[in-house]
Amino acid sequence: MDALKSAGRALIRSPSLAKQSWGGGGRHRKLPENWTDTRETLLEGMLFSLKYLGMTLVEQPKGEELSAAAIKRIVATAKASGKKLQKVTLKVSPRGIILTDNLTNQLIENVSIYRISYCTADKMHDKVFAYIAQSQHNQSLECHAFLCTKRKMAQAVTLTVAQAFKVAFEFWQVSKEEKEKRDKASQEGGDVLGARQDCTPPLKSLVATGNLLDLEETAKAPLSTVSANTTNMDEVPRPQALSGSSVVWELDDGLDEAFSRLAQSRTNPQVLDTGLTAQDMHYAQCLSPVDWDKPDSSGTEQDDLFSF
Results as ranks from 00 to 15, higher is better:
3 A>W: 11
4 L>N: 11
9 R>E: 13
12 I>P: 11
12 I>N: 08
13 R>E: 15
16 S>T: 06
24 G>C: 14
24 G>S: 11
24 G>F: 10
25 G>N: 09
25 G>M: 01
25 G>L: 15
25 G>V: 11
29 R>K: 13
29 R>P: 15
30 K>G: 10
30 K>F: 10
30 K>W: 15
31 L>P: 14
32 P>L: 10
33 E>Q: 13
34 N>H: 09
35 W>I: 11
36 T>R: 11
36 T>F: 11
39 R>M: 03
40 E>I: 02
41 T>C: 14
42 L>I: 14
44 E>K: 14
45 G>S: 08
49 S>A: 12
50 L>H: 03
51 K>I: 02
52 Y>F: 03
52 Y>E: 07
52 Y>R: 01
53 L>P: 00
54 G>V: 03
57 L>C: 06
58 V>A: 03
60 Q>P: 01
60 Q>C: 08
62 K>W: 03
63 G>W: 01
64 E>Y: 13
64 E>W: 06
65 E>K: 08
65 E>Y: 10
66 L>R: 06
66 L>T: 03
67 S>N: 02
68 A>G: 07
69 A>M: 12
70 A>E: 04
73 R>C: 13
75 V>S: 01
75 V>W: 00
76 A>M: 08
76 A>N: 10
76 A>K: 04
77 T>G: 06
77 T>F: 15
78 A>H: 01
79 K>Q: 01
79 K>A: 01
81 S>R: 11
82 G>I: 01
82 G>H: 02
82 G>W: 04
83 K>Y: 04
83 K>S: 15
83 K>T: 13
84 K>Y: 03
85 L>N: 01
86 Q>M: 06
87 K>Y: 14
87 K>H: 13
90 L>M: 10
90 L>V: 11
90 L>F: 08
92 V>S: 01
96 G>N: 15
96 G>A: 08
98 I>Y: 05
100 T>L: 07
101 D>H: 12
101 D>R: 14
102 N>C: 07
103 L>I: 14
103 L>G: 13
103 L>E: 09
105 N>L: 11
106 Q>G: 05
106 Q>R: 15
107 L>E: 02
107 L>M: 15
110 N>K: 08
110 N>W: 14
110 N>H: 06
110 N>F: 04
111 V>K: 09
112 S>D: 05
113 I>V: 12
114 Y>W: 05
114 Y>G: 02
115 R>W: 13
115 R>T: 05
116 I>L: 02
117 S>D: 02
117 S>E: 05
117 S>L: 03
118 Y>R: 11
120 T>W: 02
121 A>T: 10
123 K>N: 09
123 K>A: 14
123 K>I: 14
124 M>R: 00
126 D>Y: 00
129 F>E: 00
129 F>L: 01
130 A>N: 01
131 Y>C: 00
131 Y>I: 04
134 Q>K: 13
134 Q>L: 12
137 H>F: 06
137 H>G: 14
140 S>Y: 06
141 L>K: 13
142 E>S: 01
144 H>N: 13
147 L>I: 02
147 L>S: 00
148 C>K: 00
148 C>T: 09
148 C>H: 01
149 T>F: 06
150 K>P: 01
152 K>Q: 15
152 K>G: 03
153 M>E: 12
153 M>L: 15
154 A>T: 06
156 A>K: 07
156 A>I: 11
157 V>Q: 00
163 Q>D: 15
163 Q>M: 13
164 A>S: 10
164 A>H: 12
166 K>A: 15
167 V>H: 11
167 V>T: 13
174 V>F: 03
175 S>T: 10
176 K>C: 06
176 K>I: 04
179 K>E: 11
181 K>T: 14
184 K>T: 13
186 S>V: 02
189 G>V: 01
189 G>Y: 04
190 G>P: 12
191 D>S: 06
196 R>W: 02
196 R>D: 08
197 Q>W: 01
197 Q>V: 03
199 C>N: 05
199 C>K: 09
199 C>E: 12
200 T>S: 06
200 T>V: 02
202 P>G: 14
203 L>I: 15
205 S>P: 11
206 L>M: 11
207 V>T: 09
208 A>I: 07
209 T>F: 04
209 T>D: 14
212 L>A: 12
212 L>M: 09
215 L>A: 13
217 E>R: 12
217 E>V: 04
218 T>S: 05
218 T>K: 13
218 T>H: 04
219 A>M: 02
220 K>S: 06
223 L>S: 03
223 L>A: 15
225 T>C: 04
225 T>D: 04
225 T>V: 05
227 S>W: 05
229 N>D: 11
231 T>H: 07
231 T>C: 03
233 M>D: 08
233 M>V: 10
234 D>H: 04
236 V>L: 09
239 P>N: 10
240 Q>W: 12
241 A>T: 10
242 L>N: 12
243 S>F: 09
246 S>M: 06
246 S>E: 07
246 S>R: 14
247 V>F: 15
247 V>N: 09
249 W>Q: 11
250 E>C: 04
251 L>P: 14
251 L>G: 06
251 L>C: 10
254 G>C: 13
254 G>K: 03
255 L>E: 07
256 D>Y: 03
257 E>Y: 09
258 A>C: 06
259 F>K: 06
259 F>Q: 08
268 N>E: 07
270 Q>Y: 14
270 Q>P: 03
270 Q>M: 06
273 D>P: 06
274 T>S: 04
275 G>A: 10
276 L>G: 10
277 T>Y: 08
278 A>M: 09
279 Q>I: 08
280 D>F: 02
281 M>E: 05
283 Y>T: 08
283 Y>E: 04
285 Q>P: 04
285 Q>W: 08
286 C>F: 05
287 L>F: 15
287 L>S: 11
289 P>M: 08
291 D>M: 05
291 D>R: 08
291 D>P: 10
293 D>P: 03
294 K>Q: 01
295 P>V: 07
298 S>F: 02
298 S>K: 05
299 G>S: 01
299 G>L: 05
301 E>V: 06
303 D>P: 08
304 D>F: 07
